[in-house]
Nucleic acid binder design. Structure first.
Lengths: 325, 325
DNA sequence: TTGTATGCGTTATCAG
DNA sequence: CTGATAACGCATACAA
């Protein structure tokens, strides 16, 4: 159970002092003000005893933990899972660890996690916010902490990275209009969530929405919506995210003259589904990359590259859609 | 830019000492050996100044960070994403934070992360191991750190949680045999990964595998395999995980007399796919719950509940399968 | 019941 | 070039 070696250990080992050892191992400018000879002795000893700096102590001293928090609504959502994976890999290359936080769309949880930021000396935050106003965010996030707001912009408050929902909605509507849909049903996620509200509003503005269902952005809501829509004789169902779309598709038993499904984000395996689907997909790799690009400069004390990064989506139609239309 | 309040702040505020404040705020047995009066004064001051303990300092002192590391091969895999989500929620309820680590099936990365364990005073680890032997693991994981090995058991070394791959493979083979498949193709993930090797071996032992393709457990491998299988006239294709299965399905353009797809883990949207599919699915909620159940006792210094938790999978056939067979 | 003193392992300041 | 020494904020053994 030998305790891990510390600077002390090496200092004793080399008959020098803790500060000398620290300077040598810090590298860079400081280590060059140390004699060649002791420097090598210290370095040799360090590898000999297998020295690893205690990052907790370092954090306490420097107030930097080399840790970033990623606060998303639910990592089980493949959209966030893919982003998280890419962010983690990129941050890891830059020497940062990732603390994963699920808010579950629960404001109380979000607040709890935001408090941990200071307490754990987290260096930066990438957040899919629940809090809606700039004011709320600024109250809750300790001033000076580098923040990137993901997926749901908060005007003016922070660096942000998101998809242009208007462009996405227009893309979807374009395709549906060209397909000559007349009556559309809308199944929407909670309207207090920016992306869902935004998508729903734009679609409603452009298309003839004759019936509508709102609920949590889960499959179950899609299934409930399907039942509600049963005798509405719609020729398209638009869903404000992929989970809702999957719920709808889950419910479809008979595929005789199915409505077109218009959906935001990807529907897996859609190309072979015997239902016409048009999915408007966000650029996940770019979103992840932009987050890191917005965050790193802030961590180094520079201003972020740009106030916000707005990305375009692209529409993907499956084979059944192309067949029907 | 007022620095956050510390025990000092409260001590001054209440004309007491740091240790008194510490004892009061620690609560429990210690706080009751403090006079009612000062206790209340201290607590009042604490809320007044908005005191939050500095967890970094506490960690340095106590060597406990209330942080668990989750080291998986890739969080973008929905299987791990769902598990991660459940684990995070459960641990959060128990007062732990989660550090997310992607090994990407890369042994070097795994080693890097394992070293961080000590350096960041991580309290415990849930790991999908790449290292294969008990010995390797024990060398790399600092002794005494609570560990739960997930998905890929390492005999004898640690508490482990995984699905019974033999049961799962048998389930799959049972269904395929009953469907009277004669010639099967196998597309397998890397054989150095336990689950893939295990599944491939069992399937090969029971079924008539006439052609086989191996590669990384990604969609692309499935697509490559499909091309290789083109004129092998098989009536079933078995994939050792869902990504491979999705690659296969991606490649299927014509659905005239498609082979049965047998696959481990879930294929989303499969119920409507015009291809007969049998998927053997692991019990994700149970896996996650078991991880936490195995970990928590260790964190409290007790022995784990059981050496290992082995869960059963269940087979799910889609509509097309039921139609054909 | 409460205060003083010490240490956790680092970094940073200040002498020499 | 190098070594004491002082923080960082907290917990705790030891005094009083």
């Amino acid at each position: 159970m030998a305790l891990p070696p510390t600077l002390q250990t090496i200092a004793r080992e080399t008959s020098t002092s803790v500060s000398t050892v620290s300077r040598v191992l810090a590298g860079g400018a400081l280590s060059r003000r140390i004699s060649e000879e002791t420097r090598e002795r210290v370095q040799a000893a360090a590898v000999r005893v297998g020295y690893r700096p205690n990052l907790v102590a370092r954090t306490l001293r420097t107030r930097k933990s080399n840790t970033i928090a990623l606060l998303v609504s639910d990592i089980a959502n493949p959209f966030f899972a893919q982003i998280a994976s890419l962010i983690e890999q990129s941050l890891h290359r830059h020497g940062y660890s990732l603390m994963l936080c699920n808010s579950g769309e629960d404001e109380a949880r979000e607040i709890q996690y935001l408090q941990l930021l200071t307490q754990k000396a987290i260096d930066g935050l990438i957040v899919v916010p629940i809090s809606r106003s700039k004011k709320q965010m600024q109250e809750r996030i300790p001033a000076g902490v580098p923040v990137v707001v993901l997926d749901r912009p908060i005007p003016g408050a922070h660096a942000s990275v998101y998809s242009d929902q208007l462009q996405a909605a227009n893309l979807l509507c374009d395709v549906l209009e060209r397909a000559k849909v007349k009556r559309v049903a809308l199944v929407a996620g909670p309207s207090h969530i920016y992306t869902h509200r935004c998508r729903a509003e734009h679609v409603t503005a452009r298309l003839n929405v004759v019936v509508r269902h709102e609920g949590p952005a889960q499959r179950e809501t899609g299934r409930a919506a399907y039942i509600q829509f049963l005798d509405a004789r719609v020729d398209a169902i638009v869903c404000t995210n992929n989970f809702l779309g999957q719920g709808i598709i889950d419910s479809i038993a008979e595929v005789t003259a199915p409505p077109v499904i218009g959906v935001f984000d990807e529907i897996p395996m859609s190309h072979l589904l015997p239902i016409p689907i048009v999915a408007v997909c966000q650029d996940i790799p770019m979103l992840a990359e932009a987050c890191v690009n917005q965050l790193l400069p802030q961590l180094n004390g520079e201003a972020p590259l740009a106030g916000s990064v707005v990305l375009s989506s692209r529409a993907i139609t499956n084979r059944a859609f192309q067949l029907y239309h």
